[in-house]
Design a protein around this nucleic acid. Structure first.
Lengths: 193, 193
DNA sequence: AAAACCTGCAACACGGATGATGTAATTAGC
DNA sequence: GCTAATTACATCATCCGTGTTGCAGGTTTT
């Protein structure tokens, strides 16, 4: 679906367009195709040649970003690694992808589209990992895992907002996991048995 | 600035327009003035008489919503009530205002605008309340209060997303405070002294 | 080197949104 | 209730973004 024996330079153009669209639309979701084309270093008509309309462009953007996110998660071995390790690695990977494709990943997925299916897979992976963490005693038995997952997403989103490309993903990930599991309340004294 | 001896019907029109703008733009940020006018039950030109252009309208929307948010926070007595009580009341109040003015409050505030100043006040109030909570031992001494505040905002935002006008604000507020202070990890056994 | 392909440029038609104008209706103040 | 002012409405002119097409020139592939 994605590669139809496209010529090398055409492939590069598509990449440039998608990256430009991400940058420009993140700054202004209502930006014109002209602005995207300028950022990509191509003519506006070239965009229209590859993507029939604006919707097609954003769809491609969404699926491209979702694929990268899936890869970032799979690289963390959500099914096999110890839950805490998996959570940490996945979080750090996801932070990197999300910081580069924030707009594309915030795009509402058309029902039935590939991006939508990928989003479902992502949610499932996340839910599975959290369940494993719960079974390991990392998460309270009575916790509402759906709420926990949403909080987790929110923490990731918040980490990206305030972070002006400063802190490294591992530091941010550590803080996210810590906040998710322990909150901001006082820590039990370390001297307890 | 807001009331310049405006006639009674005009005042009503302005209100209707602002509420309509909130509803329509929340559903589609790129909606036309025409759609807003239709929702408000007025002619599009009427909007243009009150608000020179789209920017003026969204500015007014932002300041109007920010004022309501300030009021919601002040009603919670952030300076005098016990921190935990204040946090709960403020959260519940803010949830109500934010669910009604989600779009307006997400609007980027122009530097120097009234909305921007109000946002600063809001952040200050929140920071103050958190500091009081920290002094009371509700929040860990070593916690980064700026991060705590951002997490708090993120939890409020997430609560509004998933909540299809279902749960009541007090229940949501309780969950937010609980998650903020304790996280999702296992609870210490209740039998401890 | 030839063929196939891709890109940029220019011009075009189209639609939708914007903003201003003159006229009819509604309101406030007495 | 009456008058004068103010408001709302319908129409119009204009602009901006979109999507399309044709062609010339350059690049990749074979």
């Amino acid at each position: 679906m994605s590669d139809k024996t496209l010529r090398a330079d055409a492939e590069r153009s598509v990449r440039a367009i998608l990256e430009a669209a991400e940058h420009v639309l993140a700054a202004d979701p209502g930006a014109s195709m002209e602005q995207i084309a300028a950022e990509a270093g191509v003519a506006r008509t070239t965009i229209h040649r590859r993507f029939a309309n604006r919707q097609a462009l954003t769809d491609a953007l969404a699926t491209s970003a979702a694929r990268q996110l899936v890869k970032a998660i799979d690289d963390g071995r959500p099914d096999t690694a110890p839950p805490l390790v998996a959570m940490h690695r996945i979080t750090a990977n996801v932070l990197e992808v999300k910081s580069a494709w924030a707009f594309a990943l915030a795009l509402p997925a058309e029902p039935g589209s590939e991006a939508s299916l990928l989003q479902r897979d992502i949610n499932d992976s996340c839910a599975l990992t959290l369940r494993r963490a719960q079974n390991d005693g990392l998460i309270d038995e009575k916790a509402d895992l759906d709420w926990v997952r949403r909080v987790y997403y929110a923490l990731i989103g918040e980490s990206l907002h305030g972070n002006a490309e400063g802190a490294d993903p591992d530091t941010l990930a550590a803080r996210i996991i810590d906040t998710l599991l322990r909150g901001a309340g006082p820590r039990p004294s370390r001297s307890a048995p």
